[in-house]
Amino acid sequence: MRVALTIAQSVIAIILIVVVLLQPSKTNGLSGLVSGGTTESFYSKNKSRTSEAMLSKITIVCAVIFAVLCILQNIVK
């Protein structure tokens, strides 16, 4: 049981790392300073249906599963 939890936690950890690295950065850098910030566009109005939103949801699910696996590993000891 303990080995299976360790393997599952390792797989979830790798998936979590990859998903976090795939997410785009939230900062505009100097372009936000020069242009005065973000503007309204079709993309900004429909963010809930984009790949960015999907990556965010996958990150949350993986983080919750990772936390549950950590707790289960401590209980199984």
Results as ranks from 00 to 15, higher is better:
Met1Tyr: 03
Met1Leu: 02
Met1Trp: 01
Arg2Val: 07
Arg2Glu: 08
Val3Tyr: 09
Val3Gly: 05
Val3His: 05
Ala4Thr: 06
Ala4Ile: 07
Leu5Asn: 04
Leu5Tyr: 13
Leu5Asp: 02
Thr6Lys: 09
Thr6Gln: 11
Thr6Trp: 08
Thr6His: 13
Ile7Tyr: 02
Ala8Pro: 01
Ala8Glu: 03
Ala8Thr: 00
Ala8Trp: 01
Ala8His: 04
Gln9Val: 04
Gln9Ala: 12
Ser10Arg: 09
Ser10Leu: 07
Ser10Tyr: 03
Val11Ser: 04
Val11Gln: 03
Ala13Ser: 10
Ala13Tyr: 08
Ala13Ile: 00
Ala13Val: 00
Ile14Asp: 02
Ile14Asn: 02
Ile15Met: 13
Leu16Thr: 03
Ile17Trp: 03
Ile17Phe: 11
Ile17Arg: 04
Val18Asp: 04
Val19Asn: 02
Val19Ala: 02
Val19Arg: 02
Val20Trp: 10
Val20Phe: 13
Leu21Trp: 05
Leu22Arg: 13
Gln23Ile: 00
Gln23Leu: 10
Pro24Asp: 10
Pro24Gln: 11
Pro24Val: 09
Ser25Gln: 08
Ser25Asp: 10
Lys26Ile: 06
Lys26Asn: 06
Thr27Gln: 14
Thr27Ile: 09
Asn28Ile: 07
Asn28Lys: 12
Gly29Met: 04
Gly29Glu: 04
Leu30Glu: 11
Leu30Gly: 05
Ser31Met: 08
Leu33Arg: 15
Leu33Gly: 14
Leu33Ile: 14
Ser35Cys: 15
Gly36Tyr: 07
Gly37Tyr: 05
Gly37Arg: 07
Thr39Leu: 05
Thr39Met: 04
Glu40Phe: 07
Ser41Lys: 06
Ser41His: 06
Phe42His: 10
Tyr43Ala: 06
Ser44His: 13
Ser44Leu: 12
Ser44Tyr: 14
Lys45Val: 15
Lys45Trp: 13
Asn46His: 10
Asn46Gln: 10
Lys47Ala: 15
Lys47Asp: 08
Lys47Phe: 15
Ser48Phe: 09
Ser48Lys: 08
Ser48Gly: 03
Ser48Trp: 06
Arg49Cys: 04
Arg49Val: 00
Arg49Tyr: 08
Arg49Pro: 00
Ser51Pro: 03
Ser51Ile: 13
Glu52Trp: 15
Ala53Asp: 14
Ala53Ser: 15
Met54Arg: 10
Met54Tyr: 13
Leu55Ser: 02
Leu55Gly: 00
Leu55Thr: 00
Ser56Gln: 09
Ser56His: 12
Ser56Val: 01
Ser56Pro: 01
Lys57Glu: 15
Lys57Met: 15
Lys57Thr: 14
Ile58Met: 05
Ile58Arg: 00
Ile58Lys: 01
Thr59Pro: 01
Val61Trp: 03
Cys62Val: 05
Ala63Gln: 04
Ala63Thr: 10
Ala63Arg: 03
Val64Glu: 06
Ile65Arg: 00
Ile65Cys: 06
Phe66Ile: 04
Phe66Asp: 02
Phe66Trp: 08
Ala67Cys: 14
Val68Gly: 06
Val68Thr: 11
Val68Pro: 00
Leu69Glu: 03
Leu69Met: 05
Cys70Met: 15
Cys70Gly: 14
Cys70Ile: 14
Cys70His: 09
Ile71Asn: 02
Ile71Ser: 03
Ile71Leu: 08
Ile71Asp: 01
Ile71Met: 05
Leu72Asp: 07
Leu72Tyr: 06
Leu72His: 04
Gln73Ile: 13
Asn74Tyr: 04
Ile75Met: 12
Ile75Cys: 08
Val76Trp: 13
Val76Ile: 12
Lys77Gln: 14
Lys77Arg: 14
Lys77Ser: 12
